[in-house]
Structures are given as C-alpha cells and as structure tokens.
Design a binder for these strands. Structure first.
Lengths: 143, 143
DNA sequence: ACAAGGTAATTGATACGTCAATAGCGAGCT
DNA sequence: AGCTCGCTATTGACGTATCAATTACCTTGT
C-alpha cells in the first residue's frame, strides 16, 4: 500500500462523513427527521405506507434489531404505528401515520435539492460517470 | 435531480458504509480496537505518544466532547492515560500506554492490508485516479 | 488587583448501532 | 396430538455521536 492509496481512502471516508453530516443537518432543520427516520419513511412510502417489519428491514438492508429499536423511537414521536399482523401472529405490520407522511413530504424536496447541491453539482458529467464506475467496481469487489 | 444522480449518491453511501463495516470488523478481530480507538492511537503516535487533549481533537477533526467521552472509555481499558498539563492547569495531556502502543502496532499492518484488499485492489489505476479527482472536486465544493 | 469574558475539559441527556439473549408462534415430522 | 426446529420481533447491555450545560482556569483591560 502506498501513500496515495491511503490518502484517497482517507479522503473517501472524510468526504462521505462530511456529506452525511450536512445532509443530516439540513434534513433535521427542514423536517425534524434523522437520516434513519427518512430511510424508514421512504421504504414505507414505497410499500404504500404499510409493511411487515421484517420485509421492511430486508428492503432497507437493516438488521431487524436496529429497525425494531428505531421503530420504537419513531412510534413514540407518532411518525409510525405498529399493528398485529393478520396472517401471522408473530408478525408486526408497520404503518406510516399522517404525521409521518407529512414529515416525509416536507423533507423530500429539500433533501433531494441538498443532495444535488452538495454532491451532484460538485461533479462534471465525466467525473460523475467515473465515480459511478469506480463505485460499481468496489461493489463488485465486495460482493 | 435525475435518477442516475440519486442512484450514485445511494451507491456512495451504501458502499462506504459497507467498507467501513468490514474494516471495523477486521480491526476488532485483530486488535480489539474500534475505528475510533485506532484513530486516537494513530493521532497520538503521530505526536510521539503524548499530546494535549484539545490539540489531539483538532488534529483528528473531532469535537472535544466526543474525544473526551472516547478517551474515558479508552482509559478504562488501559489504552491511554491522562495527566495534568504542566503549563496550563485547565489542560490534560493524553498519552499512549504500553498496552495502547501494543494494540496499535498489532492493528496497523493488518488494517493497511485490509484497506488495500477491500478498497485499493478493487480499482484500476485509471479508476483510482478518477475517484481521487472526483473526491477532490467534492471537497472543494464543500469547502 | 480584579471583574469580565474567553478557553479547556468534562459531564449528562438523548439518539443511534450492534450483539446476544429472549418470548412466542408456525411448520413439518412421527 | 406432541416435539422439535426455525422464524418474528423485541429487549437489554454496551459502545458511540451530538448537543447543551458546567466547572475550573487563564487572560485581558482597567
């Protein structure tokens, strides 16, 4: 491993950390949602606002325990609700509340704009394609 | 914002999350250190094993409170120690213990190898340069 | 010298993530 | 039916990150 490789690795870590930080701040300012909250609501909205907890976890690639803890916090704030599953007495169905949907709707547009502003606008089309390509390679290598 | 931009953004988040996860697991397996522990010990080793707490925080770009909490945990495990500062009675000096140095030494080589294996080896030289370039642009845009 | 304001470090509260353990239900086998 | 095994979801414990508040000390201006 040479110096360049380490420097780019550090840059990748630092840059993504800072991007996450800014997006999180902006999200919280606009909608009082954390990135986790937003991810949950997004996954729910892609399932018409209602989904089995384990399916939700799978669709988000989250551990079930993590989701369970997070849902507990979101439930307390009235963003989601939980109901017993009709077809499987072990199961729970998660559903978005009105307040959850409202927060999600309020968050989405500014969030997309922030991604564009902080990330997409920083790159030329060529840089963007090259980044996409590099990420694809890393993912392939990981898989 | 178009679909591609969002997809690459998600890929950037997911990929770096997974890379961090693997590196963290590997670090813990080799040395019982968390990435935070390693970052602290690295910053300390670059200061000959001893440094004022606030300077350490500045060099790592960590909030002081974060470092303070982390040092408390590391002190309990015997990885670092704290002493009163001779020239400023408010201050604290942080120093690496024998055990801390041993853990750091045990961690470093495998950690570098893991970065090479999981990250650097995934990219061609061209991809690597392009990634470096894209990150530079994003950083510039952020700054 | 001394009051006022700034700085160093810590602390407490709260949110988040992971792991291991648990409770309860379903499904298949005998 | 009864048993075992696997799955669903939750929980508790612990480490980690951020924010606000706090303590103790330095520094500057008068």
């Amino acid at each position: 491993m040479n110096t360049d490789e380490l420097a780019v690795w550090r840059s990748l870590l630092d840059t993504t950390t800072e991007l996450r930080r800014r997006l999180a701040t902006q999200l919280a300012d606009d909608s009082q949602l954390s990135p986790g909250d937003y991810a949950v609501l997004l996954a729910l909205s892609e399932a018409d606002g209602r989904r089995r907890s384990s399916e939700l976890a799978a669709s988000m690639d989250w551990e079930r325990s993590r989701l369970s803890h997070h849902l507990g916090r979101m439930e307390k704030r009235g963003l989601i609700a939980r109901e017993d599953c009709a077809t499987d007495n072990r199961g729970a169905e998660v559903l978005m509340t009105e307040a959850g949907a409202a927060a999600f709707n309020a968050a989405t547009l500014p969030h997309m704009r922030a991604i564009k502003r902080h990330f997409a606008d920083a790159l030329t089309p060529e840089q963007f394609d090259a980044l996409s390509d590099a990420l694809r390679s890393i993912n392939q290598h990981l898989g």
